[in-house]
Simulated assay, not measured.
Amino acid sequence: MTNIAVLNYGPRLDYPAMFPELTDNLQVFSQNELKNTEELGRYEYVPDSDAVPYAELMIRRLHRERPFTHIITDNEYDLERAARIREDLGLIGQSAVSARSFRDKAVMKEVAGRAVPTARWARLATIVDLTDFLADAGYPVVVKPVSQGGSRDIAVLRSDEDLLAFSRRRWREDLMVEEFVEGPMYHVDAVLGDGYRFVASSRYLRSCLGVFSGRNNGSVQLRPESGTARRLEEFLDRTLSAFETPAVSAYHLEVFHTPDDGLVLCEIASRVGGDRIPWITRATYGVDLHTAVLRQSCGLPVPPPPTEPPAEVHGSVSILPQGRPVRVPGAPPFPWVRHYEVNEDLEPGAVTLHSASHLCFVVVSGADTAQVEERLLEAEAWVMANLDE
């Protein structure tokens, strides 16, 4: 009999809606307090669940009473733990080796580099490793933890002054450095399974690192029939050819488009993309990325992905916390605004902590990438002009 352990991160995932035929066979351990949990077989809210071992201990204990058939997660930080539990319990799904190759950015670059171009990089044990890399590669460089996400704890060093400032920060034992790559960044979001293939490509409105200098973040979808989208999809396939991949998985790939028209891997993760990516994907294609990957991971059917180009594409922009109390306006008064949402949980005076931080966000639609970008910038300008202290 089906018995599914769920390590949850997304605060809005509705598991009864995703698994209507198996709701009472879901045992959910959640990082966030979820709604609509009454019909679940088990539900526990576990604060900081991905940083404490309680959920893993309980899953192993519960397995002795009623064996689990599947272990699933939507949380990037739980991928390795979920894989380890599966292997120990003899369950199907992503292996520990595969999970680590997508989670550890240094291992990721080593593996992916067999198939596609990557920036030059090195692990950092001490500050001397960093200065040696700089002596060879020069500025600018990016220093980041190997297993973080959302642009957290990243530093861009452009000069000796930046290096000195970085040297005053608490040293971490999980750092790597890589060359800074010029050019816009694209992201490819996919769900791949047996007989199922969905791939969508977008371009970030601005660099994800720009949030730390006060620039709002977002992305605009490409039309799937465009040459750039097809080129990015081929790059995804080449990248994955170097990895051990599970039978079913979501992927979030980030790619630099260099000034000489090259494509260079930034990162790839075996999970659904964050921020507004699931929202705009659902709006354009009618595909819920989480539902598509999690149901297939449990051997359950999902509707086939669309085969015809969409009537319109979408984009989103997230307005950053301003570092001071502000009053957020209502929705921008434009007919092509498809969704507008204010972050009611944000504390007054909050500052940006990662690339998904937001005061509010706007989703717009358009016929193509250029029109979506034009409308996003107009909506962004309206919101920024109407923020009141």
Rank of each mutant, 00 (worst) to 15 (best):
A82N: 01
T23E: 04
L294Q: 00
G227P: 04
E378R: 14
L34V: 10
H70S: 00
E65H: 09
T307A: 14
E378F: 12
R152D: 10
P278F: 13
Q371A: 11
P259A: 09
D132W: 06
G274Y: 07
F243P: 10
D14L: 07
A115S: 13
R231G: 09
T281V: 12
E33S: 14
L40Y: 03
S207R: 08
F29I: 11
Y15I: 10
S355E: 04
G323A: 00
D153P: 01
C360K: 02
E38Y: 12
L294T: 03
T291M: 07
E341G: 07
D24N: 15
P53H: 01
I319F: 05
T307K: 14
F212P: 12
F19R: 07
R215H: 13
I127K: 14
T258K: 04
T69C: 01
D74V: 09
Y285N: 13
V143E: 01
H252V: 06
V181T: 12
G149E: 11
Y15S: 11
L57D: 15
V287F: 02
V302A: 07
T118Y: 07
A381I: 12
S241G: 12
G262A: 07
L79T: 10
A292F: 02
T307S: 15
H339G: 08
E244G: 14
R230E: 11
S49D: 07
R170K: 13
V141Q: 03
D88M: 13
V255F: 08
H257V: 13
A83G: 02
R60K: 10
Y77W: 13
L205V: 11
F102A: 10
F256W: 05
P305Q: 09
D189A: 08
S167C: 02
I59S: 02
A55I: 04
A155R: 12
R12F: 15
F212L: 09
R238F: 03
I319S: 09
L79P: 02
V328N: 00
G149F: 10
T131H: 00
V116G: 14
E38C: 13
G210S: 12
L89Y: 08
E80P: 00
R215F: 10
L22Q: 15
V116Q: 08
G273C: 03
G262E: 15
F334L: 06
I4T: 01
D174Y: 08
Q31C: 15
L353K: 14
S95D: 06
A292M: 06
V141A: 03
H252Q: 02
E110V: 13
V111C: 07
A5Q: 02
S316I: 12
P117S: 14
G195F: 10
V328K: 00
A269C: 06
E344D: 15
L91Q: 03
N386D: 07
V255E: 03
D132P: 01
